[in-house]
Simulated scan of single mutants.
Amino acid sequence: MPGPVQSIERAAAILRLLAASSGRLGVGEIASSLGLARGTAHGILRTLERVGFVEQDGGTGKYQLGAALLHLGTSYLDVNELRSRAINWADALASRSGEAVRIGTLLDGKVLVVHHVFRPDDTLQALDVGSLLPLHATALGKALLAHDANAAASIRDTELESYCRRTITDPRLLARAATRVRENGWAAEVEELSIGEAGIAAPIRGYGGLVVGAIGISGAVERICDTGRAPEPRLVAFVRDAARAVSRDLGGSRW
């Protein structure tokens, strides 16, 4: 029986390392972490870049997972599986936060709401399952946009609709917001889709750390945000806890 192919094993190790990293990594960092010669690591990275599995930042020269690999991860995960794994955690998040909870995935440049838990009170609410939300004006959308290079590229070439005065319609500002999402691990919206409404969301990761969806809460600004209109830290923590829990159930054990 043929033995393992060393170059494939090394490529897989590089992809796992990038998936586990909270930011981009340079060739030297990757080579040192995996015990590879710098030239070997660079050659593998160039090959992975050509097939879209990694992307190199033009400014820093560092690498991150590429859109082609992210789409493979998304196609691997059936939406029904995402819903079934997340239902209990979504219910718990609604109970802890006192707010409505939505879970979304990317679909044709929008956020498809695949699960919705009503705010746990007696107010009249409409079910959003099946709704399509804009990427640039929602916390769910930003959490997904920040981890999908193809979606980010499509946004750059599109005239972004303004829903409220605070909606981000400048692609450069949206790119900066996406960078903050990747750095912080969560996204927010404050009166960007609807006046008086705010939201917080965090990415859901599947096997290998690939982002396959997002979970978030939404509600009145005065409940979601503090007096300075910044999201309440305890609510951010609740959302991130829920995202990690769903991620663990989907095989993203590091999250």
Score class of each variant (00 low, 15 high):
residue 94 A to R: 09
residue 91 D to V: 13
residue 120 P to F: 10
residue 94 A to K: 09
residue 126 A to Y: 00
residue 102 R to A: 06
residue 99 E to H: 05
residue 110 K to G: 00
residue 85 R to T: 09
residue 128 D to W: 04
residue 118 F to D: 05
residue 117 V to F: 04
residue 89 W to A: 15
residue 87 I to C: 08
residue 97 S to V: 07
residue 99 E to C: 04
residue 88 N to F: 13
residue 106 L to E: 06
residue 128 D to F: 01
residue 90 A to D: 13
residue 108 D to L: 11
residue 96 R to F: 04
residue 101 V to M: 07
residue 86 A to P: 08
residue 83 R to K: 14
residue 90 A to R: 08
residue 86 A to D: 11
residue 117 V to L: 11
residue 89 W to Q: 14
residue 97 S to C: 07
residue 96 R to A: 11
residue 84 S to N: 14
residue 89 W to T: 14
residue 86 A to K: 12
residue 129 V to S: 02
residue 84 S to F: 11
residue 97 S to P: 00
residue 120 P to H: 12
residue 127 L to T: 04
residue 115 H to A: 09
residue 127 L to I: 05
residue 118 F to P: 03
residue 117 V to H: 13
residue 124 L to R: 07
residue 94 A to S: 14
residue 119 R to T: 15
residue 113 V to C: 03
residue 121 D to Y: 05
residue 101 V to G: 10
residue 83 R to S: 10
residue 88 N to H: 13
residue 111 V to W: 04
residue 116 H to N: 04
residue 107 L to N: 05
residue 100 A to Y: 02
residue 97 S to H: 04
residue 114 V to P: 09
residue 112 L to Q: 00
residue 129 V to M: 01
residue 90 A to G: 15
residue 92 A to P: 03
residue 86 A to H: 09
residue 88 N to D: 15
residue 117 V to Q: 15
residue 124 L to W: 00
residue 112 L to T: 00
residue 110 K to Y: 03
residue 111 V to E: 05
residue 113 V to R: 03
residue 93 L to Q: 12
residue 89 W to V: 13
residue 91 D to C: 10
residue 109 G to M: 10
residue 83 R to L: 09
residue 128 D to C: 01
residue 111 V to S: 06
residue 105 T to F: 00
residue 92 A to N: 10
residue 106 L to H: 07
residue 105 T to A: 12
